[in-house]
Design a protein around this nucleic acid. Structure first.
Lengths: 267, 267
DNA sequence: CGGAGTCTTGACCTCTATCAAGTTTTGTGG
DNA sequence: CCACAAAACTTGATAGAGGTCAAGACTCCG
């Protein structure tokens, strides 16, 4: 989503981060032609918020005030279901817009908190309105981004349809790795999850235990290696293979079919 | 979504349907002030497609050509997962826009087919572009609709996080009943599902068998009654109660834990 | 009335949630 | 830099929920 460019920003270089100009430029589009708007762009890129780990950006139900562009770090959006168990609705990674859905209802949905120290650009609703009326292309671009977000969430639904925990987990890791990719020189094969296992599990409707078990299982087969939140995919496409089969080994679907269901590769 | 008004259209009155003018008016907004655009509106409301049960509107990957507004009937969007099992990504009910996500990528996602005889208004991409450039309010409205759709899908994710099949099913029925409500005089307490159990199950990542079992279970408790696809909710809020508890019958969550958690209806 | 498709019911078995310890990692203060 | 405490993660045992296969009942149509 948006234009992503590996960041080397002038300011605080503690964390790898997006070049905010590039991303915002993607949103502003034609507005940039106008020298007058350069000024605004400059203001937007300076107008930032930073959050410590665990700090909250917005709470559930707060009225829409601004769209945020995540520059560095990672966030999560959570709710609490009626029975009290925590639910993770989404994660947010550098280069992504946060708060789009609040454009529809006028209120933020869920509690948005930082998973790690994060930096964000703030695009105030007033500025957004200003820009949108002055430059039609801005709204066109926003519409495109929102539509893309709808598509992303539709694919997320697909992901959740994988009944099997193993499939969901593999798909989610691919998804997250893809979104993190920008920041990693190694592409998909190596990445660091910013969130706890419990968050990942809650995102997928699983328990941390199940999540852990499958990861260890894959590791025991040599497909991946993990060390805490650090991941490395040893067998290229291993995740894809797992993700694409609800059916275990290319072996049986069910009882009375074939003996050793080990559900694994030779190992 | 959109403005919904119970329909009494002049044309073919076989099926209860939305008043297309009202819905389109919600999209077009200010454009309507312009007498010139009335003409376009007239054209859009006439420009319709109708589909027989099972017929397809668009296929996966087709390039974006038009946005559709469903006037009557019901559609589903499906994909096939890599292992060949069918997945239902979404249902579409009267008054809803179809194809928004294709605005982002330029291509439709999934196979869109009719669940029952359906009628749709066609808003060609060219017309859309025309309108959008002439009337900024149109794009603003579309952005709002897209953002709302993002929110809807975020809540859908929440729904899927209900691990328990019973909870998912109850939430989904509430969701669908709500979207169907416009057409039913009895509100939420009585409705007819347009889709087969198998589709509903595939939408939720369940099997038809499990779906059926839970429905019959609720029926045996007198909470609902069903006859084929016809539903009636006998105990008001029964679905809400089911939906809000992962915890079964006021009994235990698990062995050795808690005597009576209540939280259930009288059995 | 018959036949196809849809829905229900049953038996069985796998998978995942749950509870309960361990173990490792992370963060903090000495 | 080490020691300690608090999280986070892993591992194990167990049972309940849901998937799978199979067959029967019901519906809808022609």
């Amino acid at each position: 989503m948006g234009q992503r460019v590996q960041g080397t920003d002038g300011g605080n270089g503690e964390v790898p981060s997006m070049c905010p100009r590039c991303v915002l430029a993607g949103i502003l589009g034609e507005a940039l032609q106008d020298p007058d708007s350069r000024q605004l762009l400059a203001r937007l890129t300076q107008d930032k918020t930073s959050l410590g780990c665990g700090q909250t950006l917005r709470r559930d139900g707060e009225v829409f005030q601004a769209l945020y562009m995540l520059r560095a770090g990672a966030l999560k959006t959570t709710t609490v279901s009626e029975d009290g168990s925590p639910q993770v609705i989404d994660f947010h990674f550098p280069g992504e817009l946060i708060g789009l859905s609040a454009l529809g209802t006028g209120r933020y949905l869920g509690l948005i908190t930082a998973l790690s120290p994060s930096a964000l650009c703030v695009i105030r609703s007033t500025d957004l309105e200003d820009l949108s009326t002055r430059y039609p292309g801005v709204r066109k671009r926003l519409l495109q981004l929102a539509a893309r977000e709808v598509g992303r969430r539709e694919r997320m639904h697909q992901l959740m349809l994988g009944t099997r925990a193993e499939v969901r987990l593999a798909l989610a890791l691919l998804n997250i790795a893809g979104r993190l990719q920008v920041l990693s020189a190694d592409g998909l094969s190596r990445f660091r999850l910013p969130m706890a296992r419990a968050d990942l599990a809650a995102y997928l409707g699983l328990t941390p235990e199940t999540t852990s078990r499958h990861l260890r299982n894959w590791e025991s087969k040599g497909w991946i290696s993990t060390r805490g939140r650090e991941f490395r995919v040893e067998v290229p496409d291993a995740l894809q293979v797992i993700a694409s089969r609800r059916i275990p080994d290319g072996v049986s679907v069910n009882h009375t079919r074939l003996a050793g269901i080990g559900s694994g590769l030779p190992g």
